[in-house]
């Protein structure tokens, strides 16, 4: 059970990294170079608020998810890992 969860989380992380590289203006960055716990905004990967717009749309288009709770937004958008966990928690009953 736990293995399945970890595998699913790893798959989501990989997918998210690919989507970020494909859709955001990340110059000369490959999906493999993004660390799971790297901070996405500000220091770290250096994304800005307008990249957040793209991530909101990516979550909606690829996972059917809407981030409604603004307070939770800060922790959800912290890193690839937190994003992946949010996707996992909110899609596990769908798959």
């Amino acid at each position: 059970m736990e293995d399945q969860k970890e595998k699913r989380l790893a798959d989501i992380r990989e997918k998210l990294k690919g989507l970020l590289v494909e859709n955001l203006s990340l110059e000369d960055v490959t999906p493999d170079e993004i660390k799971d716990d790297e901070i996405l905004f500000g220091d770290g990967l250096g994304l800005d608020s307008l990249d957040a717009v793209e991530i909101v749309v990516l979550l909606q288009r690829n996972f059917g998810l809407e981030v409604k709770d603004m307070e939770k937004g800060r922790e959800i958008f912290y890193s690839i890992d937190t994003l992946a966990r949010y996707v996992y928690e909110n899609t596990k009953n769908k798959s």
């Binding site: 717009v53 909101v56 603004m70 937004g73």
Partner: peptide, 8 residues
């Protein structure tokens, strides 16, 4: 607010 309010 966080991320310039874009989520909202």
């Amino acid at each position: 607010q966080h991320l310039g309010g874009v989520v909202e």
